[in-house]
Design a protein around this nucleic acid. Structure first.
Lengths: 153, 153
DNA sequence: TCAGGCTCAGGAATATTATTCTGTTTTAGA
DNA sequence: TCTAAAACAGAATAATATTCCTGAGCCTGA
């Protein structure tokens, strides 16, 4: 954890919303000159506070119509089998998020696919193929009301 | 939904992973000159396939230690009360994602806060203050194994 | 209190990149 | 096959990123 002053926070808030802003545009808004602004941005990248710069796509316009949250638990909870499972599951591109939840040694996955049939195929032919899965329960998203990547600083 | 050819997909895949790539760098990798590459990127922005360009921060380095998924259902499900609720809840910066689910609970929220005490405060003093919430159940994330913003094209 | 070193801001110079323009090639449809 | 529209390459220009140098404030130790 790194100390951030108010200027850093302003910079991060701007870039969390629009990473295409030029150093000059940011400098103007926060009342600094370009080079210290630029230096600060670079430091924030160097110390890993800024992890990446990405574009976000409109999911529906690229034909991805299904979001599902999938809860699952493992048969065996030994360190070995758990980490093997975690390694295997991480690579699937359909799975956007994986979290380990409190409660019953459970995982929750966020899965995005083209349609229900594709979702079904993914579960059957890829996910369920993994040994060590005890059970699987899916909740489908009816409506995505908010999807935010900007953290509150 | 817009038709994407193979070149568009390559471009989007690159930018989904690193939006700082220059048009020239992309052009080189896909074997085009700069100007058509540049045109394509601009069209993808214009037609809304590319929604935004953002930086992603390291959650733990900025002191956000708690991720929680919160299931809740409403007392009244009329169109009016639902949309009033949706409007109110969308503005909270602690809430990163809101989805309406199939099944038992109406909504699932992804909430990120500094620590458990902050989480508690948020629930008590902001979320639970909303009328029309019937019940609330939180699952805490023990470990975040994957957080991906790039869709599979 | 003072001198030295450190961090940070400002400004100017240079290197890269974005952006626009023009003319050519390719493609798709009649 | 012909025509119109779209896609492409290459060059010129504008804007931005990036580097470098300078000076001001501020610890810190003697």
């Amino acid at each position: 954890m790194v100390a951030l002053d108010l200027i850093d926070i302003k910079i991060l808030n701007m870039l969390q919303r629009d990473a295409a802003l030029s150093a000059k545009a940011i400098a103007d808004k926060i009342g600094l000159s370009v080079s210290p602004t630029y230096d600060r941005i670079n430091k924030l990248k160097a110390n890993g506070i800024i992890e990446k710069n990405v574009i976000l796509l409109n999911r529906e316009k690229i034909g991805l119509g299904v979001i599902a949250y999938c809860h699952l638990s493992l048969k065996s909870h030994s360190t070995q089998t758990s980490s093997a499972f975690e390694e295997q599951i991480t690579v699937f591109e359909e799975i956007m998020e994986i979290v380990k939840l409190s409660g019953n040694y459970d995982y929750m996955l966020k899965i995005v696919t083209k349609d229900l049939s594709t979702y079904h195929d993914f579960i059957e032919s890829k996910l369920a193929k993994l040994s060590n899965i005890a059970n699987l329960q899916t909740s489908f998203v009816m409506k995505e009301l908010k999807r935010e990547t900007a953290y509150k600083l």
